[in-house]
């Protein structure tokens, strides 16, 4: 749960949108919240904050497309 909140904070910082965490199953790419630039920013921040390495090609858009999915993947990689 804690992870999820941290991830929501990261997403809010990167996108500047306050309502990002409302729906944790919303598709972040399809809804246009994350573009390529924001995606990379999230990736780099995840690496720094969680100490995990996520290569760009591992960042499969279907596996990282919602807050809940990101949270699951981060837990796996931690």
């Amino acid at each position: 749960m804690e992870n999820t909140e941290k991830i929501v904070d990261i997403l809010k910082d990167v996108t500047g949108l306050d309502n990002v965490g409302n729906d944790k199953d919303q598709d972040l790419f399809a809804s246009g919240i994350l573009d390529s630039m924001a995606t990379v920013e999230v990736l780099v921040t995840l690496q720094d904050d969680f100490g995990i390495t996520v290569p760009v090609s591992e960042f499969d858009r279907s596996q990282w497309s919602t807050i809940n999915k990101i949270s699951d993947r981060v837990k796996e990689l931690e």
Partner: peptide
Amino acid sequence: FRDFIYMRLVFTMMK
């Protein structure tokens, strides 16, 4: 191009 040039380049620049 997005995945193998743009994102990688931006990733490196940021890191």
